[in-house]
Write a protein that binds this DNA or RNA. Structure first.
Lengths: 114, 114
DNA sequence: GAAAGGTATTATGCAATACAAGGTACTATT
DNA sequence: AATAGTACCTTGTATTGCATAATACCTTTC
């Protein structure tokens, strides 16, 4: 039990939402794009975390991909949301809203003692 | 990979924050109080989840407890935050704020397609 | 054609909650 | 005062999903 683990647990909670959100916003992205967008939002994600997650989302029918050639290296997998993926994202956003509200309710009474 | 698991992952992320927040707000609570407060905020937690968490927080030096007799049953463990616990909570709140901001940044471009 | 860098994959470990079952202490009822 | 019932606490096991790190492969560039 340490602070870093606690923070990590929080980050885990929003990871999928953020990934899906980014793909939705960009229409089509490849993993490095996602990593870059995440970084812009101050969320550090590495390939070893991202790839397995994308695989799971694929398996779940939330994503689709197509190969696109690149001039700077090997071909890339460009991902986009399926209809199911959009629905899934919508639900996650709703859940996120509800949870945020819950946290707000709970922590509002906790006036910081500083 | 299904929607329920994804939602569950989100809930997990805020669990510790909420528990600590509730204890902080109430000064001293026993587990049933926590479960009740969580429920009020529409967060369902059961004993089998809560107790091990409280144990971990104890081990981490974030909580303290004292036995208090009850007229409706056996004695209860009333928990309160230690100084470390308050610090920990403060950090978690800060992290929560940052993450919320990140999610907002990422999902704002994602205008819902409805 | 060799090196370097970009892209994708996978194996292993770890941390934390969910679930379910059970154990103990007290109260109430008779 | 015994028994049933309830409140409270504990624990073992399974499951899940991310983190880390190592690896393999494909291009370009020099």
């Amino acid at each position: 039990m340490n602070l870093e683990n606690s923070k990590a647990q929080m980050r885990k909670g929003i990871l999928e939402l953020c990934i899906l959100g980014i793909i939705d916003a960009e229409k089509e992205v490849y993993p490095s794009d996602i990593i870059a967008r995440m970084k812009e939002a101050e969320l550090i994600v590495v390939e070893g975390t991202l790839y397995p997650l994308l695989s799971r989302l694929m398996k779940g029918g939330l994503l689709d991909y197509s190969w696109v050639e690149s001039k700077s290296g090997p071909p890339r997998k460009y991902y986009k949301l399926t209809e199911n993926g959009k629905l899934h994202l919508k639900e996650l956003k709703k859940t996120w809203g509800t949870l945020s509200q819950s946290v707000a309710t709970i922590t509002q009474n906790t006036q910081n003692h500083e």
